[in-house]
Write a protein that binds this DNA or RNA. Structure first.
Lengths: 244, 244
DNA sequence: TATAGTTGTCTATATCAATAGACAAATTTT
DNA sequence: AAAATTTGTCTATTGATATAGACAACTATA
C-alpha cells in the first residue's frame, strides 16, 4: 500500500496526512489503543516536517480519533467505523445491532415545496407538484452518522413530518399512511467533500468526505413513495452492501 | 441545496469551489454545453474573490470538465459520470453498454507475496501464505475509471497474471482455472482522498476523492477466490447498486 | 538518579492561498 | 462604431501552510 503526499494540491499536507492516518487505522495498520509511531518517525515516513505531522495529529485529536500524552506517545482511541448495511430492504436502525447501543433519528426540518425536476422524475410526479421535504439526522451512541434529505408526495403523505417527529422512524411513519412494506428501487452512490450544512449537522471538521446515496423507495407493486439523498461521514461510516 | 465554503479547513477554497461546481454539474444545476455564470457572479455566490473562482475554474479546465473562452464565457463540457453497476454478479465490463463505446482493463503490475492478515482473513488462508497480487486499471473511452488491487491464492491461480495480461478480463482469466461462475460475497464501501499512486494511475488532480470498494468474490459453493480493493474516481464514476 | 525518548512550545523564515485593484483582450450587444 | 460584458494578466498585500531549529516538560527505563 503506497503512502504518499501531494504538494500544492489544494489539500494541505496536514489534512492529507490526517486522512492517511485515519485510513491506516481503518485497515488495521495502526492497532486500536496502541501508540502511533513517534512524530519524528511519521514525519520521515511522509517526508514532511515534524510540525506538519503535529498539525495532522492535532486535527485527529480534535476529532476524537487520537489522544496525545506528553512524554508517552499518541494513542489510537477505539472507535470503529460503523458498518451500515445497505440493500433493497435497508432500514436505518435495522442491522446496526451490536454496533451501537443507542440509535435514533432526529427531524431537523420539514417543509412543503414544489418538486424540482430531479424530485418529480424520481417520484413520477408532474414538475412543480407539491412535495414534503424532510431533513433528518441519524445518530448512533450520540454521534451523527447520517444526514438525509427526503421527499414525499405532499397529497398522499400530508402530516408525515409530524409522524416522523413523533415516532423518529420513517418505517413507522409510513405505516400510518398504509405503507406496510417498501423496497429500494435504486441506489446510486457517490462521494464528495462535505458542504457547510453537512459539516454543521454531522459535527465534522472542514475538509471531511461524505458518502452520498441517492435512493428511491417503492411499494412492493412498484409505486415510488420516497426519494432520498443521504450523506454519511466517510470517517465514521462504511456501507456494507448486502445481497438482495 | 446549500452551497457554502469553509475557511482554514486544510482544503483550499479553490478546491472546495471546484468540487461544488462539479457537484452542481452532476445534479444538473449547470447544464452541459451551457455557460457557467460569469466569474464575478460565482465569486459573489461563494463569497470569495474572483481570483479564487478563477483558480477553481483553472483546475476544472485542466481536468477537462470546463472550457474557458475569453470574452464569451466558461462552458461545461459534456462528460457524464459513468454509472457503474455493482451487485452480487458485478463484472467490470458488463452493464456499461451504451455508456462507453470502448472499455478495457490494463494489467499494471503483478507480484507474488506473502498474504497480509487482511488478505489472508478474506481468502481464508493461513497468514503468510503466498498470494498473487494484480494491479489493474479499468478504462472507458480511454479515460481511467477504476484502479483495482486484487489478491488470489498463489497455488491455485499460478499464472493468472499472464492470463490477465492476455485476455484483459478477470472473468476470462478465472475460467482458465476452472472457475466458470463467481459471486460477490461481500462489498464494503468507503471514500477518501486519492493517494499519490491513484492520482498517477487514474490521471487525477491532487485533492480528488475516490470511492473505495472492498470485495470478496466466491465460487457458487462459497469458496473465496478473489479479494479486491477497487478505487473509483468520484468525479467520473458513480456506483449504481443493483438488486441481486 | 541519570538518560533516552517523546510530546509541547516558542521563534524565525519561506512558500502557497486568498484578497484587492487595475487594466488588457476578446466577444457580444446596442 | 461604441458600449457592455466577460475572460486574461499583472502588481501588491495579507494570512494560512510548511519548514527549520532550539529547548522545555513529561515519561519510562537503564
Amino acid at each position: 500500500m503506497v503512502n504518499s503526499i501531494e504538494r500544492r494540491s489544494g489539500v494541505s499536507l496536514w489534512r492529507q496526512i490526517a486522512d492517511q492516518i485515519l485510513h491506516s487505522i481503518a485497515i488495521g495498520d495502526f492497532a486500536e489503543n496502541a501508540a502511533l509511531p513517534p512524530e519524528m518517525a511519521l514525519a520521515e515516513r511522509y517526508g514532511v516536517n515534524r510540525h506538519t505531522v503535529r498539525s495532522a495529529i492535532a486535527a485527529l485529536v480534535q476529532e476524537g480519533v487520537l489522544r496525545a500524552e506528553q512524554g508517552r506517545g499518541t494513542f489510537v482511541l477505539s472507535r470503529k467505523r460503523l458498518s451500515y448495511p445497505i440493500g433493497t430492504r435497508t432500514r436505518f436502525s435495522a442491522g446496526l445491532q451490536g454496533q451501537a447501543s443507542e440509535r435514533r433519528s432526529v427531524l431537523l426540518e420539514a417543509a412543503v415545496e414544489p418538486a424540482s425536476r430531479r424530485v418529480a422524475d424520481a417520484l413520477s410526479l408532474a414538475r412543480g407538484s407539491e412535495v414534503i421535504r424532510l431533513e433528518v439526522r441519524g445518530e448512533a451512541d450520540g454521534r451523527p452518522v447520517s444526514r438525509a434529505t427526503s421527499w414525499f408526495e405532499a397529497g398522499r403523505f400530508s402530516g408525515i413530518d409530524a409522524a416522523m417527529a413523533e415516532t423518529g422512524s420513517v418505517t413507522a411513519s409510513l405505516e400510518r399512511f398504509g405503507v406496510s412494506d417498501y423496497l429500494r428501487q435504486s441506489t446510486v452512490l457517490s462521494a464528495r467533500h462535505a458542504d457547510a450544512a453537512d459539516l454543521a449537522d454531522l459535527d465534522l471538521q472542514p475538509g471531511a468526505i461524505v458518502l452520498v446515496t441517492v435512493a428511491v423507495n417503492v411499494t412492493p407493486d412498484g409505486q415510488p413513495i420516497q426519494f432520498a439523498e443521504t450523506r454519511f461521514p466517510a470517517e465514521r461510516v462504511e456501507l456494507k452492501l448486502s445481497a438482495l
